[in-house]
């Protein structure tokens, strides 16, 4: 066989792979469903953002929902309407006192997109951070750690998330919280159920530039539904652009007749100050 023929064949094979073209494909559309992303916590009460779903192939369409009301229910009884503070962003009035052991849910009523109802959530107890320690690596000059400990209550599975911020004066100089997102990472208590546990976060910082740095650690106690939502978001991100997965993992929702999440969390906070050694 002439080498030229072989080269042409191989080039044909290579160039014929990975073909992408635009097609006319009419997607299904759910017609616009209510989307609620909301949380209930001891720290901030109830916060909910309402929008509507837009067609998959027209994501620039407005998701604004006019004439929407959000009502908070406690043990299936209406407690209060939430106040709209911004466009479709609702918070609970200051007069509402949230209690542990009560099942809370929200019902969203709209003029054009019907009614949606969330799953029930309970106010979670605050789990205090027992210790928070900043430690510079003594062996190598760059590594740093933030060590924290807490006591895990001895009951059913608990789910946690930990974030830290560091400030010099009032300026934020380091944060573990993702940009433009609420909590994303989490861990469970399978390895330390009912015990005191120590955990650590490693990072590289510019603390050495400042005389004083304030470090704030926040330990979130999150509900199982919230954890499932975060887990599904992670799987969604992992599978969404990979055609070889059988299907993209959908994002978990506990909003009946809609999408989104109504989750519960409570966080505790501990602050330490790091002073540059002389």
């Amino acid at each position: 066989m002439k080498p030229l023929v072989l080269i042409i064949l191989v080039i044909s094979l290579m160039t014929s792979c990975e073909l992408v073209k635009q097609i006319d494909f009419e997607p299904d559309y759910d017609g616009g469903k209510i989307i609620a992303h909301g949380f209930i916590s001891q720290n901030y009460g109830v916060q909910v953002q309402i929008s509507k779903s837009v067609p998959s192939n027209d994501t620039h369409q407005s998701s604004y929902v006019p004439d929407v009301h959000v009502t908070l229910y406690a043990d299936n009884f209406p407690v209060s309407n939430l106040n709209e503070t911004d466009s479709c962003f609702f918070i609970s009035p200051d007069s509402i006192i949230l209690k542990e052991g009560v099942a809370y849910k929200i019902i969203i009523t709209t003029k054009d997109y019907g009614t949606a109802e969330s799953g029930e959530q309970y106010i979670l107890p605050s789990i205090d951070i027992d210790s928070l320690i900043y430690r510079k690596d003594t062996i190598n000059w760059k590594g740093e750690k933030l060590l924290y400990s807490f006591y895990d209550p001895e009951n059913n599975a608990n789910y946690y998330s930990f974030y830290y911020d560091a400030f010099h004066d009032e300026d934020l100089i380091l944060s573990s919280k993702p940009d433009d997102s609420f909590i994303l990472s989490y861990f469970d208590d399978r390895l330390f159920n009912g015990q005191k546990t120590w955990r650590e976060e490693s990072f590289y910082s510019t603390f050495y530039k400042f005389d004083t740095v304030h470090i704030v650690g926040r330990l979130f106690n999150i509900s199982k539904e919230f954890k499932t939502f975060l887990e599904s978001l992670k799987e969604y991100e992992y599978t969404k652009e990979d055609p070889f997965f059988e299907y993209t993992s959908p994002v978990f929702s506990n909003i009946k007749n809609g999408y989104g999440i109504f989750g519960s969390y409570t966080f505790s906070e501990k602050k330490i100050t790091h002073i540059k050694p002389k």
Binding site: Q49, S51, T59, S181
Partner: peptide, 16 residues
């Protein structure tokens, strides 16, 4: 997906 949830105050958008 049958629709899209746009970015909101808490999370980035995702398909439904």
């Amino acid at each position: 997906p049958v629709s899209y949830s746009k970015d909101n105050s808490f999370y980035y958008g995702y398909f439904n």
